[in-house]
């Protein structure tokens, strides 16, 4: 592919944005470039804001800012598959007019993806398929951030786990990550045609 893909992010917190940026840089190097204007202008900070803003964010993303793709990050805040499916349907409906939207919906919250990476880092040789999504949110955050409250400190902890993370391993453990990654791969397949 010789054309750079211009992207934007609409998500509920900086942990989401940080993950997407790491993922795109590491897993698709030299392919994506963040639209700077969209990046500072459009910023949600809660799950409700992400949902409320989705129709206008998608419209502005592709008309005003000329993005190729918009990433939308939202924690499912649940481990119940029915609720997660309902959320996917809801978000898809809110941005139905636009094809190039990738939904990043985590079972419970994004820290559970990091939790898998942490487990893998601590048990590099293990082939055991240890499910971690039952761990409650605040416990997951405590394990990842070690009680740090300041966002910058939390991101430092996250970045330690995200440095050269094993994409294939995470895809094999987390269904929600697999769903996210698959959307990106499909988009790139279609985009390069």
């Amino acid at each position: 592919m010789n054309q750079i893909v211009s992207y934007g992010i609409l998500c509920e917190d900086r942990a989401h944005k940080n993950f997407i940026e790491h993922y795109l840089t590491q897993c698709h190097p030299g392919v994506f470039q963040q639209n700077e204007q969209f990046g500072w202008q459009i910023k949600a900070s809660t799950a409700k804001e992400v949902e409320d803003a989705l129709p206008d964010a998608t419209r502005q993303a592709f008309t005003k800012y000329g993005l190729d793709i918009l990433f939308v990050g939202r924690d499912a805040d649940s481990s119940e598959s029915k609720q997660i499916e309902a959320l996917k349907v809801k978000l898809s409906t809110l941005c139905r007019a636009h094809a190039n939207v990738i939904l990043m919906i985590h079972v419970q919250c994004i820290e559970h993806w990091l939790l898998y990476l942490q487990w893998h880092q601590q048990n590099p040789e293990s082939t055991k398929n240890e499910p971690l999504e039952h761990i409650v949110r605040h416990e997951a955050k405590l394990k990842i951030y070690g009680g740090k409250l300041r966002v910058e400190k939390q991101l430092e902890k996250a970045n330690e786990l995200l440095a050269d993370f094993d994409l294939n391993w995470l895809e094999s453990r987390s269904g929600s990550f697999k769903h996210f990654h698959k959307q990106v791969v499909t988009f790139l397949d279609n985009y390069s045609r």
């Binding site: 202008q41 409320d52 206008d56 964010a57």
Partner: peptide
């Protein structure tokens, strides 16, 4: 769909639309 800012104007401003 047209802009929906007026359904939640404060939020639309805060998000940056």
């Amino acid at each position: 769909d047209p802009p929906q800012y007026l359904n939640g104007l404060g939020e639309a401003w805060k998000v940056g639309f």
